[in-house]
Structures are given as structure tokens and as C-alpha cells.
């Protein structure tokens, strides 16, 4: 009996020790370095979820890359939804701060993206809840940069940062500094 109790105690101790190391390390890694997430919905077709509702892609979100809130136009990023803080949304960056964009269905025809904000849009126009409905998004809501599709295996690929040529900003920050207002 005493033998079995000692064994139990040792086992419990080892478990506690492992638990207190593994859980914080895993949580920190998922918060700061990278995590995986499943994409739902059709807003990023055809880049993500091309098959519609029957397939859903799993993407790798890189948090380390956006730790200084640096994104480029064309990157696919995940954000905390400005309308519902429980929800994350995945969109493509169309314009950075200081750019003037031509909107599609927003209340103003042209919008200048304010300081510290970005303009994001889904690839599937008209079926996406994006900046055209809620306006420019603050960079502080940035969550991760989607770099790879991990699942399903036949769709394994690196996500390229491409900006559709018709969605180029009308005037970018660099032009603005040198040109007349």
C-alpha cells in the first residue's frame, strides 16, 4: 500500500511540474509566435475556401510578423472584428494609412485612410463584411498575418501578397508628401 501511494505521489508531482511548464509555454507561443485557425465563410473566395461551404481551409497565422504592426498592401491578415470583439475576421489589406481609396458601397465615394488605420476588403466583393461597411480599421485590432494554407493537403501553399490592380489606392502616402494637396 505504502509503495503504491509513493508511486502515486511521484506521478502527481511530475504531472504538476510538466503542466506548469507546458501550459504557459504553449499559451505564449500561440499568442506571440503563430497559431492555426479554420476559415469559415465565403468572403475570401477564391483565395480561401474556393469550394464553398463543403470545404473549409485551415491557415497558419503568423503573429510574430505583425508584432510591430507592419503590414503591406495585399497581405491577408486576421483582425478582431470591430463590430463583435469575440469574432475574428480574415481580410486582405487594400490600403495603408494616408492612402486614398475608391470605395465600393461605402457611404463616401472616396476615403482617406486616417493615421494608424488600414482599409481591408474580402476578395469576394459583395459577399464580404469589410471596410466598405464598417470603414477603416485601427491597426491595434490586427491579430495575425495568414501566411500558409495547411489543410486540406492538396491545397497546401504559401499565400501570396497580391493586390488586385483595380484596387490600387488612388493616391498613396508617398505621393501625398511630395505633391500638392
Amino acid at each position: 500500500m505504502a509503495l503504491s501511494q509513493g508511486w502515486m505521489k511521484r506521478y502527481f508531482k511530475a504531472f504538476c511540474k510538466g503542466f506548469f511548464v507546458a501550459v504557459p509555454v504553449a499559451v505564449t507561443f500561440l499568442d506571440r509566435v503563430a497559431c492555426v485557425a479554420r476559415v469559415e465563410g465565403a468572403s475570401m473566395q477564391p483565395s480561401l475556401n474556393p469550394g464553398g461551404s463543403q470545404s473549409s481551409d485551415v491557415v497558419l497565422l503568423n503573429h510574430w510578423k505583425v508584432r510591430n504592426f507592419e503590414v503591406q498592401r495585399g497581405d491577408i491578415v486576421s483582425l478582431v472584428s470591430p463590430k463583435n470583439p469575440e469574432q475574428k475576421i480574415i481580410k486582405r489589406v487594400i490600403a495603408l494609412e494616408g492612402d486614398i481609396v475608391k470605395t465600393m458601397g461605402h457611404k463616401n465615394r472616396y476615403v482617406k485612410v486616417p493615421r494608424g488605420h488600414i482599409w481591408v476588403e474580402g476578395d469576394h466583393h459583395g459577399h464580404s463584411f469589410d471596410s466598405n461597411s464598417f470603414g477603416p480599421v485601427s491597426l491595434g485590432l490586427l491579430h495575425g498575418h495568414a501566411t500558409h494554407i495547411l489543410w486540406p493537403p492538396e491545397r497546401w501553399q504559401k499565400l501570396e501578397s497580391v493586390l488586385p490592380p483595380e484596387r490600387l489606392p488612388i493616391q498613396s502616402e508617398e505621393d501625398c508628401l511630395h505633391g500638392s494637396p
Binding site: P114, R115, G116
Partner: peptide, 9 residues
Amino acid sequence: IAKSPSDPK
């Protein structure tokens, strides 16, 4: 305490 909307840092 919140992140500033105009400067996330």
C-alpha cells in the same frame, strides 16, 4: 487602458 486608435504602439 486601451490601445490608441491612431497609434497602436
